[in-house]
Design a protein around this nucleic acid. Sequence first.
DNA 1: CTCAGCTCCTGCGGGC
DNA 2: TGCCCGCAGGAGCTGA
Length: 287
Amino acid sequence: MPELPEVETVRRGLAPAMEGQMIARAELRRADLRWPFPPDMAARLTGARVVQLRRRSKYILVDLDRGESLIIHLGMSGRMVISGLNAPHVPGQFHFDHPAVEKHDHVIFHMAQGARVTFNDPRRFGAMDLCATDKLNDHPLLASIGPEPLGNGFHADYLGARLAGRKTPIKAALLDQRIVAGLGNIYVCEALFRAGIHPGRMAGRISVSRIATLTDTIRATLLEAIEAGGSSLRDYRQANGELGYFQHAFRVYGREGAACVTPDCGQTVRRIVQSGRSSFYCPSCQR
DNA sequence: CTCAGCTCCTGCGGGC
DNA sequence: TGCCCGCAGGAGCTGA
C-alpha cells in the first residue's frame, strides 16, 4: 500500500525523531525481512548519527555520519511508529510513553535523546540494507529505477520514448519501476482516470498529447496525496505516532460499482484484473 | 529485450 | 462459532 506519497509522508514524519540524532541502539528482533539483514547491521547502526533522511522512489534513505546509508523499504504492510519524542516545539510532535512491543515489531531504533522508532511489518515484504552512501546508485535495489515522477527527468518526451513500441497495457507499464519510480496500484489507477486513459490501452499506442496529459496527472495526483499526508501530520491525526497512512479520497480506486465522480457521467466504476492486480476505471471517461 | 506468471507473507472478510 | 478460501500487493525471479 505505501506508494511514493505515503513513503514521502513517512520520511517527513521521521525527520523530527531522527535527523541530527544518534542511534543509541538498533534492536533487531529478527534476522531478516524479505532478505536477511547484513550480519553486522546492528553494530554498524549503533552509535551512528543520522545526517538526513531522503527518499528515492519508495525507499527511505537514512544517511549516516559514517559514510553509509540505511535503505528502508516498507513493502506492502510496513509502517513506522514514533514514540517518546518529547519535543513540543517540533512540528508533528508526539509526546507519550513507549507502548509495549507488539507482534511484527521487527526493528526498533532507540534514539539517543529518547525517541523510539519502530518498524512493524506483518507481511515482511519490507527490506533493510546498508550501503556506502556514495554507492547508493549502484545498489541492486536502486540501480535500475527510473526517474522520480516529481523531478525534472520525468516529462512527456521521456515517457513517450519509454512507452514507444510497448505492447503491454499502460497500467503495467506505469507499475514498472524502471520506467517511472514510486507508482503503485492505487496512484496508477488514479492518474489514468484523470488522464482519461483506459488501463488496458496498449502503452505504445497513446498519442503524444495524451502522454503529456498523463505526465501532468501523475504529478498532480502524487502532489495532492503528499499534501494530504502532510496535512495528516500537521493535524496530529496520527495521534498514536503511526506515520504514513492517511485519509485520502480516491476517485476510482476501491470504488467498484460506485458512481463515476465526473459530473453528469452517470457511469459506474468498474474493476478488471490485469496481471493479477485490480484496476479500477470508468468505462465512459477512460478510452 | 519483452512480457506474463509465480512467489514471498499475514490479516481480513465473505461464505457456509 | 469456526473453518476454508480468496484477496490484498511490491517487486524479484523464472521461463517462454
